[in-house]
Design a binder for these strands. Sequence first.
DNA 1: CGTGACATTGACTAGTATCAACCAAAGTGG
DNA 2: CCACTTTGGTTGATACTAGTCAATGTCACG
Lengths: 252, 252
Amino acid sequence: MSATALTWRRPVTVHRANGPHAALCGDCGARHSGLCDALTDEDLAFLARMAQPMTVAAGQLLIEEGAPAGHFYNINHGHMRLFKALPDGRRQITGFAAAGHFLGLASDHVYAISAEAMDDVTVCRFARAQLHTAFETFPALERKLLEVAMHELSFAQEQFLLLGRKTARERVTSFLLNWAAREADCATAPAPGTRLRLLPTRTDVADYLGLTIETVSRTLTALKRDGLIDLPDQHEIVLRHPAALKEIAQAV
Amino acid sequence: MSATALTWRRPVTVHRANGPHAALCGDCGARHSGLCDALTDEDLAFLARMAQPMTVAAGQLLIEEGAPAGHFYNINHGHMRLFKALPDGRRQITGFAAAGHFLGLASDHVYAISAEAMDDVTVCRFARAQLHTAFETFPALERKLLEVAMHELSFAQEQFLLLGRKTARERVTSFLLNWAAREADCATAPAPGTRLRLLPTRTDVADYLGLTIETVSRTLTALKRDGLIDLPDQHEIVLRHPAALKEIAQAV
DNA sequence: CGTGACATTGACTAGTATCAACCAAAGTGG
DNA sequence: CCACTTTGGTTGATACTAGTCAATGTCACG
């Protein structure tokens, strides 16, 4: 566990327990997404007092699979990769988490996955015991969490189909369309020419799709050759023909 | 939607609204598992009055992916395969459900997966609106459902690793050990000589593991040849050397 | 006994992985 | 400022796992 690598930042606002809640959550990237969106400003201000703000530098582990699940986290800013690994190093990324994403809820008392920062990340940390209290005080929180869990479950089922039955080409296009939907924060089809800012590296994409980096690279090149996408630079992708991509992706 | 194929059975006990709850749930295979386990006999008796008991014959669809999610179901007896399919027929089984399993909760208002009976199944059916009421009346139900959802999510993450990164041999052994744990209803390692009754066909197993039936068959034959399992008949598997199987499966 | 569903086995193929070379951009230190 | 290293990406040649196609086997059932 690389807890020692984490830098701690305890802003003065934390100590102003009776100060305006805006100082706590008003400028948070997660204020209107995830669990925080389920609460009123007052309730959130109350809840924020039990949160420990902290930062995680790019590349650092926040959560390690198998470690005792003592804390929960809510991402305020930045992005994380969530993954499981086999003893021999094979890795499967189970998802990418952004602001508003709630991390660390394990059915067991041990984390089921690892979480690593892809860029500089800030989170709110809660002790396991505190969450239980929060549920008692704010039932809306539990309801929202159930809603989020159901949503993640149906996404997981879609991902089963991708990992178990789709070809490399189908996987990559499914991923691009999913990423576009995530960036646009909506489910409507992206317009032709939509520009994606792709934070994950080719390795990340490969480990997410159950492929190798070479196959991801070749597939992107092939999609470009076919006029379906453009690759202005390594981390940008332009969707030239989203309708055709959707066709290839087999919905999703 | 093959709702017409479903046979309806409304036992007299349903109408005995004030009768002993034992008549309703006492002999149900799900009484002490899943959501029902979270409630007292009295609460369950109350809840049972809003349930419509029904039966689904082997091979029939209870839920169809994409259909309006008007009802929820709780399995009382029997087993179902849950799956998603692509337009061209490729199928991914997302799980196998037995007594106590809760079905049909969609984040959207449309079912995310299909559910088909593997043998003769009986379920309790609830209307979508009723479930909301039930949550208000029995908060324990919602808490239990969240617990179940979290558990399914961490299982899903394990399955991502299997589908994305494991070899055929690793997938099949992982499946055997999982099935053993499910039959024993516990997580302890199975004893050498443990006999599995495998309800799913080779096609089911293949569609669950992201393989073809031929690969599943060959892999089982290879495991038998290596002295790790025995195949007394098509639907029975004896775990000769569970420790070695666990080694191959890479934990799980 | 014939039929159909499911399973096994074999021969061959295809899609991805593996191995390896090369490229580009960004950072590092003399 | 420029050689050097590091990191991430692309491309090519080859290998190998699992898929495809096809024949055969087994069992239950009418």
